[in-house]
């Protein structure tokens, strides 16, 4: 079983979720429950940092889709940053860049939130 880990940190009222390892059908529920927890605690400004992510499957992509309506419906957003080229390609092929904002760095993603606020 491939390793998968989620780390949460706060930066200027934005929640950063750093996900590492393999995000597939087995590990997707872990990631989803973290996101759901943030939403339950009314945190709607979320950045998902993918710099440690090695692989993402369609089930992993589904997690983003599963929470985005809730987040945007509450005036927040989920932004994605630091995806490795290989991982970004998976998002890109499926057309995610037209649905989500992608950033090269965590800072620029956070800045985007703050500009909006």
């Amino acid at each position: 079983m491939e390793r998968f880990e989620v780390f949460l940190k706060d930066r200027e009222s934005v929640k950063i979720l750093n996900i590492q390892g393999f995000l597939d059908a087995h590990t997707a529920p872990d990631f989803e429950s973290e996101l759901q927890k943030l939403i339950r605690e009314k945190n709607y400004n979320i950045v998902v940092n993918l710099d440690g992510l090695q692989y993402i499957s369609s089930a992993g992509l589904g997690v983003f889709m599963g929470v985005i309506e809730d987040i945007r419906g509450n005036g927040g957003d989920l932004k994605i940053c630091c995806a490795a080229p290989k991982v970004f390609k998976v998002f890109d092929l499926l057309g995610f860049p037209s649905l989500y904002e992608f950033f090269d760095s965590e800072d620029s993603a956070i800045k985007k939130f703050n500009v909006k606020v």
Partner: peptide, 30 residues
């Protein structure tokens, strides 16, 4: 469809007269 589910697909049309394939790629592999 459930929000977290989706389908990636390629839909193609075969034109035997012109010997061409017209396709559209809905989030599918190249």
């Amino acid at each position: 469809i459930e929000r977290r589910s989706f389908v990636s697909a390629i839909i193609a049309k075969l034109n035997s007269q012109e010997e061409t394939v017209v396709f559209t790629r809905a989030g599918h592999t190249p």
